[in-house]
Amino acid sequence: MSTGVYMQMLLLRQAYYIFQEVGRSLIRNSLLNFAAVGTTAISLFVLGVGVLLVINTNEIAKTIESDIEIMVYMRHNLAEEDALTLEPLIDNISGVQETTFISRDEALKSLVKQFGDEVEESVGEENPLPDTIKVKISDPREVNKIAAEIEDLPGVESVRYGGQDFVKKLFSLTNWVRIIGLLLITLLGFCGIFLIATTTRLTIFARRREINIMKYVGATDWFVRWPFLLEGIILGFFGALLAVGVLYFSYGALIAKIQETISFLPLVNSSAVLFRIFEGLLAIGIVMGAVGSTFSVRRYLRV
């Protein structure tokens, strides 16, 4: 028999024993287990909320940003041919995606179309509208810089753009969410790991006699360690599962409520994205459990 197969059979035989041990200790320290699972769940829940908040604000910001354009108004006395020469200049500015020239006649026509003949009458003979170039840009966060550059071009009377203040606020909000969320998650994460480590340590302490005997009858280090590691991993996993469950139902309810009232808000609700997040949380929970118990096992199990 190869050592690999032999090891697997050994593992199989020992697995029964290990699971029995884990079950025992999970029942024995139920209060502390509860605290460890709870803290892990809370920290992962906060993490989940943070992630959802960030990706949603990003989504909203992106939607708003994609609507941002700069309107460039020409000096009134500028001839249309000269105004037309400005278009390639603007096109050459880095960050500019697309330009559209709207002559003053076209502008008036679309106004008339929108508001009717009274406009034409009140305007009279002289068209008061300037030639305009509509500029789309690739990164909305550069709107200020690009607008200023355009404004410096000869023949430009003024530039106007909207929405960027809101976007800026949204971005600073997401930044704050990120920072505070990260702090909170780190803090809670450490609490979770610490509690899992404590639980594992208590289990080790409660079982020190057995560990001592195991050592004397020739248990391998891993055989002694496995139940404790597994216990930590199970605690972390259940913490994450709890967080995911609460997150799933509360987020679903929240989304439904919001879309009832503000239906145009582009919220993230694709199950693919949500599952990715939930998977991530479960993985982090398991890692937290493993880290917490490894810490205790290393420190308190010199086998």
Partner: peptide
């Protein structure tokens, strides 16, 4: 217990 620990059948 001593036999379980060493992985006996």
């Amino acid at each position: 217990f001593a036999m379980q620990v060493v992985g006996a059948k």
